[in-house]
Design a protein around this nucleic acid. Structure first.
Lengths: 233, 233
DNA sequence: CGATATGCTATACACCTGTTTAGCGCGGAG
DNA sequence: CTCCGCGCTAAACAGGTGTATAGCATATCG
């Protein structure tokens, strides 16, 4: 689900990969600098940019230090996933606590220059236990929101709340993965925090329209429902 | 858009990567065998499986022959993209000619063991001119379908037909890219041609429900529309 | 027959990958 | 002072990458 009232105002431009000023500066040891540089690199240049030497260069350290701190590139990858997932979880929980709509795209629209969104977009299609857990959690969040929304009368009830939560969440995440196509076709950059309301609106408007009224005419919707009921076991 | 009446019946199981029996056998020179093996490899094992030696092994030839025929791995990649895109285009045109709903997921559900879908899922998030063109064409197809659907009264009219076409197409393609998450969360395998109606239904049902009625209650939809109109320039 | 084209392999090369190892510098504690 | 721990680099290694090159086998044509 996506609510227009959640559309944030203009943000500062994205930073490019370089060693490395960062929105989360809590534990800036060499270890943290390396992890953060790796996240930035993947967010900016995709999974193919992943290498010990690339990360080392971006962090301003030697490749040996990368391995020294993390033991292997796989372990670094897992650490990056866990870190990004934890951050997103925090943001999703904060949004949930305010009763705001729990759409992952709005959760990700923060002043981090598109870092979390960019990294997530890059890894969503890859096999990662941490990311799979995040997706599952986001679905659970969406399901809770749908439940409350139906109870309050804002959202239509359904006998398959979970299926709906899965579909809505995966649609949003899928659009994120397909961000370059979204950008080319609609001019909307789903990860750029610097994007103004207008540029995101090109994506949000048709989405909201479908959420508001569906796609089928009422007559056709009735027909489809009849077909659905025939096919049910 | 997705129509239940388009759900195909059970198909034979997927083939695994091996040298290599294939649904399209028209030009089975060494060159074609290599290209087809490469497509199968990526469909089965993702972009990280891409290497001259991996493709050569799968095709039962030497790595040198791969390069001999295509000049470089980049050229082979481009050839694979073009080939898959051409096949999908054929299928989409055939579906369009019959007036069937032009949903890419149903177009891809054929007796090729999930090959086209699997390859497309693997490359959709990567930068590829051929794939971008395919996406653009699929959006154009969807827009035409929406136009006809609105004229016939089956689909709701909208002042942003193109935006809707983009969103619907990218949702479907996004779900394809996220196929492992769809499978884990709903048990629906969007690329496996061997999947029966029931397994796909777990994805299709909530989708159809949203298409039929939207997500918001009528009261809330009216409110959202009011917000939308306020925010329009 | 020889010449040419095509298909193909084996080998080698330059460069990249992740990882290991040795060693230096610095700070703190005893 | 010495010792220890930590942070760090440089060099080396094994294994992988894409690619180039030489050469063999086969078929076809004049």
């Amino acid at each position: 689900m996506y609510s227009i009232s959640n559309v944030s105002s203009a943000r500062p431009p994205r930073t490019t990969a370089r060693p490395v000023e960062h929105p989360f500066t809590d534990d800036r040891t060499g270890r943290a600098r390396i992890r953060d540089a790796a996240i930035q690199l993947v967010a900016d240049s995709g999974p193919s940019a992943w290498s010990a030497r690339g990360v080392a260069r971006a962090a301003g350290v030697s490749p040996g230090l990368v391995i020294h701190h993390y033991g292997s590139m796989d372990a670094l990858r897992a650490a990056c996933d866990e870190h990004v997932v934890a951050r997103i979880r925090e943001k999703a929980e904060a949004a949930s606590a305010t009763g705001a709509p729990v759409d992952v795209l709005s959760v990700l629209r923060e002043d981090d220059g598109g870092l979390l969104a960019g990294y997530l977009a890059a890894v969503l299609a890859e096999s990662s236990p941490a990311v799979a857990r995040l997706v599952d959690d986001l679905v659970a969040d969406a399901e809770r929101y749908l439940l409350h929304g139906a109870a309050s009368g804002r959202l239509r009830p359904t006998d398959d709340l979970r299926g709906r939560a899965v579909v809505l969440t995966l649609w949003s995440l899928g659009a994120l993965v397909m961000k370059e196509h979204v950008k080319r076709l609609l001019g909307a950059d789903l990860t750029a925090a610097g994007t103004g309301t207008e540029a995101i609106a090109a994506y949000v408007r048709p989405v909201s329209d479908i959420y508001a009224h569906g796609l089928f005419s009422e007559a056709f919707a009735s027909t489809t429902r009849a077909v659905l009921e025939e096919e049910s076991p």
